[in-house]
């Protein structure tokens, strides 16, 4: 038992990898990208099943809709979270494609000089991230108003 503890790597694991506290902004975007991705794939599996009921005729579709509306406000809140996930995952994914596949927003290799500000995390990257945040939050609020408007709250 004591031996096993020694062999374990210190403070590693899933929660540690998703915990960006004290680190840079990009690591927060990494955590969000991963969590939204998992939310979206779980929703997609459910969504394919949901749409499958369309092929079974109007009665089956009505039953599915009734089942979903029995969740009450949680259905709308869930859809709102999924809409936000899709918006963020798409926008941030576009930034990552620019970074990874095209080598953009990174800056050229330079001679490192004190205080060693890394160019890959500097101005261009920050501008891209803040633009994404502003656009996603604006669209997310719009989606929220629309979803809750259908519910008759607003």
């Amino acid at each position: 038992m004591e031996k096993e503890k020694e062999e374990k790597r210190y403070k590693s694991g899933l929660l540690r990898s998703l915990r960006p506290y004290k680190f840079n902004l990009e690591r927060y975007t990494y955590t969000l990208h991963r969590i939204t991705g998992v939310i979206l794939i779980l929703y997609l599996i459910a969504h394919v099943f949901e749409i499958y009921h369309l092929a079974l005729g109007p009665v089956a579709w009505q039953q599915t809709m009734a089942l979903l509306s029995s969740l009450g406000i949680w259905e709308k809140i869930g859809l709102w979270i999924i809409a936000g996930s899709a918006l963020y995952h798409g926008a941030n994914g576009l930034r990552l494609i620019l970074n990874e596949a095209f080598g953009m927003l990174l800056g050229k290799p330079v001679l490192p000089e004190y205080p060693y500000t890394p160019t890959s995390l500097s101005r261009n990257q920050k501008i891209a991230i803040y633009t994404i945040v502003v656009i996603v939050v604006a669209l997310w609020i719009w989606a929220g108003i629309y979803l809750l408007w259908g519910l008759g709250i607003i």
Partner: peptide
């Protein structure tokens, strides 16, 4: 590598490994 950039953030010599890895992917 999913470009979290934390490596470049903590690097004490300004090596910027995240930049090198993105160029490597390219």
């Amino acid at each position: 590598c999913h470009f979290a950039g934390a490596c470049s953030y903590v690097c004490p010599k300004g090596v910027d490994p995240a930049k090198a890895i993105q160029y490597l992917k390219k």
